[in-house]
Structure formats: C-alpha cells, structure tokens
Design a protein around this nucleic acid. Structure first.
Length: 217
DNA sequence: TACATGATGCCCT
DNA sequence: GGGCATCATGTAG
C-alpha cells in the first residue's frame, strides 16, 4: 500500500507490491499464494500486466524434478540465493521459463510461473508473441504456458536471471490487488519425468487461461 | 571435446 | 495425439 504510488498503474487501483518475506517460505505455500496476484513488467513502450493463474512448486531438497536437485551449479545458483529473485532458464533450444526463488538465502527452492491471464498491455504482448488478435479466443495464446508468458513479457536469461522481483526499482514485480481466488486446483506437474506424481501444480479452477488441461478441480 | 537431455510450443495428421 | 526444432548445461571421457 505504501509503495503503490510508485507504480504507474493507477488504472488498476489499489495495489500492494509483494516483499521478500512473501517468498521466504515453502515453495508450495508461495505457489498457492501467488495465484491471483499480478505480474508486472515495465518496458520502454509500456506496462505489461498479467494475472497469475497457474504455478508449479519446485522443492530444493527431495524433489528430483527440481533444477537444484543435484546441488548448486552456475546455472541454478539463483535458486540457492535469497528469496524473491528471478530464475530464468533456457529450455528445448527455444523457450525461456520464469521462476522465483523461495526460502532463505542458502536454501534452494522456487516456483515456476506457468500461465497468466492478460490484464494490460495486451496488444504489446500479442505483438511480442507474433500473433494476431483476430478472435476473442486468441488472447489465450498470449501467455498460457511458461514459454509463452516469458516471450510475451520479453523475459530472457541475459536480461532477467538473478533480478530482484521485490525491489522498488525492478522492472519486473508482483503486486496484490486484493483479487480473491475462488477455488484452487492441485495436480501433478507438467512435462517432467522425475517425481512426476507429486501434486505440486496449482491453478485457479475454471480459469480459461490455464495452460494445457485445465479440467479437474 | 562429445554427447544426452530437457519445468515447451507449434505444426501436422 | 505425436513428431520435431534447437541449444545451454552438465557430466562423462
């Protein structure tokens, strides 16, 4: 509330930027709590805003699917650092995925952003994705998927890996606009082989912008 | 230095 | 529903 005046998004009304403490806990709690929050990207040509509708938790220890499972390396070091920082990695030769570090400095863990519901800067995001907004349903192609949302927001490893998501000066932040999530669904994570059965994927039940199979509640 | 693999998305059938 | 592009990273040799 105190910082809301710093953000040029008066059209969205009252918002509260999340602080580092929000991320200083178990990734499962963070993944659940992030649903309904707004991810905000400031660019030279405008503000991009998306509501977080789908996340996945990656536990530092005892989670074979997590990048941090085999210990600290140059690539995954952000996951071992302080909470509230962006961990961006390149995957399948084509896509970037955005995560946020959780837990105290020295303890690995993170949350993957899997899907956003476009809120503002929709035209600019569609352009970044190279898609035409011909029909209403085309909006769902903008940021329904981890690689898609990264492309929509212009997120890359060089530009964003290691960046704070809780600094007032950061061009990438998360805020709370008091949006109420009605119902949360929990399922196994998508696209992994190890620890594939663990229910660590969280999404807003019934939200049409959730990626892949949004059924189940 | 070489090689296998992956927290994906797109296009084709 | 399935195949494939495409490359950074980690590990083996």
């Amino acid at each position: 509330m105190t910082k809301s005046s710093e953000l040029p998004m008066t059209s969205l009304g009252h918002v509260t930027p999340l602080k580092a403490e929000f991320f200083n806990r178990d990734p499962r709690q963070v993944a659940r709590a992030l649903l309904g929050k707004l991810l905000i990207r400031k660019t030279p040509s405008g503000i991009l805003v998306g509501r977080i509708v789908e996340t996945e938790a990656y536990l530092g220890q005892g989670d074979a699917a997590a990048h941090s499972a085999a210990g600290r390396t140059a690539r995954n070091s952000v996951l071992f650092g302080p909470p509230g920082h962006a961990y961006v990695y390149f995957i399948y030769g084509n896509h970037y995925c955005l995560n946020v570090s959780c837990l105290p400095d020295g303890v690995p863990g993170g949350v993957l952003f899997r899907a956003l519901e476009p809120v503002a800067g929709i035209q600019q995001m569609a352009k970044a994705r190279g898609i035409e907004l011909a029909r209403e349903s085309d909006v769902k192609k903008i940021s329904s998927g981890p690689g898609r949302l990264s492309e929509a927001l212009g997120i890359t490893r060089d530009r964003d890996n290691g960046k704070s998501l809780v600094s007032p000066r950061s061009d990438l932040r998360i805020v709370d606009d008091d949006y109420r999530v009605r119902r949360v669904a929990i399922t196994p994570r998508i696209g992994i082989v190890k620890s594939a059965e663990r229910p660590l994927r969280y999404f807003i039940a019934g939200n049409p912008f959730v990626s892949g199979r949004s059924r189940q509640d």
